[in-house]
Nucleic acid binder design. Sequence first.
DNA 1: ATGACTGCAAAGACTTTGCATCTTT
DNA 2: AAAGATGCAAAGTCTTTGCAGTCAT
Lengths: 140, 140
Amino acid sequence: MERTVRYSKKREAILSAIQGTSCHPSAEWVYRQLKPRHPDLSLGTVYRNLDFFRQRGQVQSVGVVQGQERFDATVTPHSHFICNCCGSVSDLPGIHPETGLEQAVSSQYGFAVERCKLTFYGLCPSCLHQDQNFKEESSS
Amino acid sequence: MERTVRYSKKREAILSAIQGTSCHPSAEWVYRQLKPRHPDLSLGTVYRNLDFFRQRGQVQSVGVVQGQERFDATVTPHSHFICNCCGSVSDLPGIHPETGLEQAVSSQYGFAVERCKLTFYGLCPSCLHQDQNFKEESSS
DNA sequence: ATGACTGCAAAGACTTTGCATCTTT
DNA sequence: AAAGATGCAAAGTCTTTGCAGTCAT
């Protein structure tokens, strides 16, 4: 028996919050974002709904960044860049793994591939500049 | 002033444990593996050394799988497959993202790319079979 | 009314850390 | 002797969960 899904104002707000930002938020971020307008929102509800959305494929996980899981409402294939310094997550439209790789993994290794993540790590422009400024200061 | 690094039996054992397995272990796994021969080993030491090795580039993180961070002593570029069911991590030698992608990310987006991870998700052969068996049972 | 959804707070799981002690050099 | 490494246990974070109350259908 399938579970009946009911409407909920909080759930709607949570999904909107994720869809309305490009920051690939954590549960905490969503909570803080909505708390002012939904004073009785609880963090548990945010977690429960993030899980709900993920199971239904409305949201996907970008992975754990600096200890917190980050979410993405864009479920069409695209890659990410994650800054090792500030933890910001950015989309990289136009950057894709070679087509046929999933197929190659299946046939060569016998795995049933469902999904593929391509993620780049390094420094974002902002952290890069700060890093350079710091180097200049300390060398003087 | 650079910090002096001293020899330690435990540290050596921890690195050997990671290098000697292809299971991409978690801290817990390393701890359990070494505990019999090193009865006074502590989990904190395992964590501290994993971090030590990562900072020196002797070990890299595969990411967080089912709540636990997993490590890899192979630091040459290669991809991974992660089973969504049992959490096993496998190397995929021969599967690489297109060369030039890092360069493209740098020039198109202005990020200073340091590293790139290509990870596939799905079911490993073993879990795939169990899944099929389960379906057969429940349909009968 | 039924059962889905939520708030709250406690519990859980993993990881980090402070401090006294032990080791390496 | 100096400073790094460790054991132990406490603390810290993030996430999950049980239960009673609330809300949608």
